[in-house]
Computed example of a mutant assay.
Amino acid sequence: MSSRRPIVLFDLFGVLACHQRPGAMDRMAALSGAPPDAFTTAYWTLRRPYDAGERTAFQYWTAVLDSLSLTAGPDTIEELRLADIDSWSRVDDRMVTYAQSLRERAAVALLSNIPADHADAFRTAQPWLRHLDHVAFSGKIKAAKPDPAAFRHCVAALHADPADFLFVDDRAENVRAAQATGMNGHLFTGREELAAALDTWLPIP
């Protein structure tokens, strides 16, 4: 770590926010008229360009339906879009409070793979985001983890060195990608384990 202020860079879903709402995939499959398994495969297979801001919501959902040999009007696509946003809307209040408490000891930032329209909805619903030192949503910065460009964006935005960061994510491939750029990494398994790692990594206040 350099002599500059340390930065804890959090992933969102699976760390500060909950994974997709249970039953959401079945609900969206029913809206589309597709079998749940086929819908789930199409949903994830085509997701990365949407996360990375390379496709709009309408383009993404049209591609999903096309891959399932289905068609739908704008109203159904909008229903799918809103159901999808709702499915990723829950946060872990204890983790959000903990992350905010770290600002006495470090800068606190966020790097999340999330489409641009989801990001807009999430930012509106979660005012605590305004209190972080930087928020990077993949759909807005046009780079999704584990693309090194996503991590480089945060380094540049915070005028820091990679070694100033501890990146926290629940996906090992993303932690490895951050480490490959020169950041420190922590694979998130729970708040207690993270607190112990941060107590070792951060300077004593």
Results as ranks from 00 to 15, higher is better:
A119W: 07
P74Q: 06
A57D: 15
S138H: 12
I141P: 14
P74W: 14
H186I: 06
T189I: 14
P74Y: 08
S112K: 13
D26R: 11
R191A: 10
Y60N: 00
G182H: 10
W61A: 00
A163I: 09
P22F: 13
I77V: 14
R81I: 01
A150T: 07
V96N: 15
T76F: 00
L68V: 11
D120Q: 12
A157D: 01
K145Q: 09
D86C: 05
F167V: 12
D86T: 08
E78H: 15
D117Y: 02
F167N: 10
A150S: 15
R4S: 15
Y60H: 03
S87H: 11
T45N: 14
V91L: 09
T62F: 01
H134N: 14
I85L: 03
L80V: 07
A29Q: 14
L187T: 06
D75M: 04
R123G: 02
A24I: 07
V96C: 05
G73A: 06
T189E: 08
T45W: 01
A177N: 10
T45L: 03
D164T: 01
H153L: 03
A116W: 01
V64C: 09
D11A: 06
L82F: 06
A150V: 02
R103L: 03
V175N: 08
R55D: 01
T76Y: 00
E79F: 06
V64D: 15
R5N: 00
D120W: 00
R27A: 04
L80Q: 13
P162E: 13
Q179R: 13
W88N: 00
W201H: 12
D133A: 04
T200D: 08
S138A: 04
F13A: 11
T62M: 04
N174R: 07
E173D: 13
M1T: 10
Q126D: 04
V108P: 10
A195N: 07
Y50A: 04
A143S: 12
A34L: 03
V15M: 03
D133N: 15
A24W: 12
A121G: 11
G139I: 03
G185P: 08
P115K: 05
L132Y: 03
G182V: 05
P203A: 12
G53D: 05
P36T: 13
D26C: 02
V15L: 08
P146D: 05
S89A: 14
L158R: 04
Y43M: 05
D93I: 11
T71M: 10
R130E: 11
W201P: 01
S138Q: 11
M183S: 08
G14L: 06
I85A: 13
H19C: 06
S3W: 10
V175K: 09
D164I: 00
T71E: 05
N174A: 10
Q100A: 11
E193T: 11
Q59V: 01
V64I: 11
E192D: 06
N113V: 02
D26H: 03
R123C: 05
S101K: 14
S32Y: 02
D161C: 09
K145Y: 12
R191W: 14
I7K: 13
T71C: 05
A107I: 00
G139P: 09
E79M: 07
D164Y: 01
A34M: 00
R176T: 12
S67A: 12
S3R: 08
A34I: 05
G23N: 13
